[in-house]
Amino acid sequence: MELNQKIKQLRLEADWTQEELAQQLFVSRTAVSKWESGRGYPSIDSLKELSVLFNISLDDLLSNKELLNLAQKDLKEKKRKSRKQLFFLLDLLVVDFFFLPLFGNDLGTRVAHVSLLNLTETPVIQRGIIVVSVIFTFLYNLFAFYLMGRNSKFNEKYLIIFSISCLLIFTTLMIAMRQPYAASFLLMLLVIKVFLLIYPR
């Protein structure tokens, strides 16, 4: 008997609706429906919960082939999720602007390399734009990282596009303000983020 048939049989034997089983497993009714129709498979964690709930071993619940396929699928999903989380965590490094000497103070005869906190020879408006950009980038990516960790309903494609767009704008601003080290730092983050997106799955 296939896994989807076993799940349905166990649910019916327990005299539960799909909604009731979903509540026991803390998943949606749609997920249970997909499992029973064979259009989707439970995660490893959900399989463990099913095993405990129905007092049945994983060996009885799954064939060796099904167990191997689900384990491989679960591993791929965890790797994908980790890459996406790292994608957003990278931008949190912009907080280093406050501490690393990535900005130039023009002192007339020479340029002193300073952190954003010590950037005094730049117009207040430019400093304000940089500070706001750093804070916005940091908070947005912290929020996106949080959403990715919670498997939120937010469309991750839009989160990623917005993150890349903000980083491109921030890099362009640093180039326009003649801050090559800060721009190089942001460009390096951008390259790593693009690599994470195109890295073989």
Rank of each mutant, 00 (worst) to 15 (best):
76 K>A: 11
68 L>Q: 14
78 K>T: 06
64 N>S: 07
68 L>V: 11
70 L>H: 06
58 L>W: 08
75 L>P: 00
61 L>F: 03
63 S>Q: 09
58 L>F: 05
83 R>C: 05
48 K>C: 06
47 L>W: 10
81 K>W: 03
75 L>S: 08
81 K>I: 00
46 S>F: 00
62 L>R: 06
49 E>G: 04
62 L>P: 05
68 L>K: 10
79 K>E: 14
55 N>G: 13
44 I>Q: 12
48 K>V: 10
63 S>C: 03
73 K>Q: 14
44 I>R: 12
62 L>A: 03
80 R>F: 07
78 K>C: 09
59 D>E: 10
50 L>E: 05
65 K>G: 01
50 L>T: 05
63 S>W: 07
42 P>T: 05
77 E>Y: 12
43 S>M: 12
42 P>M: 07
47 L>N: 06
55 N>S: 14
70 L>S: 02
63 S>P: 01
71 A>D: 10
83 R>P: 00
52 V>K: 10
42 P>K: 06
81 K>C: 00
54 F>D: 04
64 N>M: 02
83 R>A: 09
79 K>A: 07
75 L>C: 01
50 L>Y: 08
44 I>V: 14
51 S>R: 00
80 R>T: 00
71 A>H: 11
78 K>H: 14
42 P>V: 07
46 S>P: 02
63 S>M: 04
63 S>A: 03
68 L>P: 03
51 S>M: 02
72 Q>D: 13
47 L>F: 08
56 I>V: 15
44 I>W: 11
45 D>H: 15
57 S>N: 07
77 E>H: 10
80 R>D: 05
75 L>H: 09
65 K>E: 15
53 L>Y: 09
42 P>S: 09
55 N>E: 15
44 I>K: 11
50 L>V: 08
43 S>C: 08
53 L>K: 01
44 I>C: 03
71 A>V: 11
67 L>Y: 13
55 N>R: 11
55 N>K: 13
44 I>G: 02
60 D>Q: 13
66 E>Q: 10
79 K>N: 12
48 K>F: 13
60 D>K: 13
69 N>T: 14
51 S>P: 01
51 S>T: 01
83 R>V: 00
57 S>M: 05
74 D>V: 01
52 V>Y: 13
61 L>I: 06
56 I>K: 13
56 I>H: 13
55 N>I: 07
45 D>K: 15
70 L>N: 09
51 S>H: 02
52 V>L: 12
58 L>H: 03
64 N>Y: 02
83 R>F: 12
67 L>G: 04
77 E>S: 13
43 S>I: 05
69 N>P: 05
59 D>T: 08
51 S>Q: 01
45 D>C: 02
64 N>R: 06
68 L>H: 08
79 K>D: 06
72 Q>E: 14
66 E>P: 03
55 N>L: 05
81 K>Y: 00
78 K>Q: 15
46 S>W: 04
70 L>G: 08
75 L>V: 08
59 D>V: 01
68 L>W: 06
67 L>Q: 12
51 S>Y: 02
42 P>F: 04
68 L>I: 11
46 S>L: 04
62 L>K: 04
61 L>N: 04
43 S>D: 15
57 S>V: 09
73 K>D: 15
58 L>G: 01
80 R>I: 01
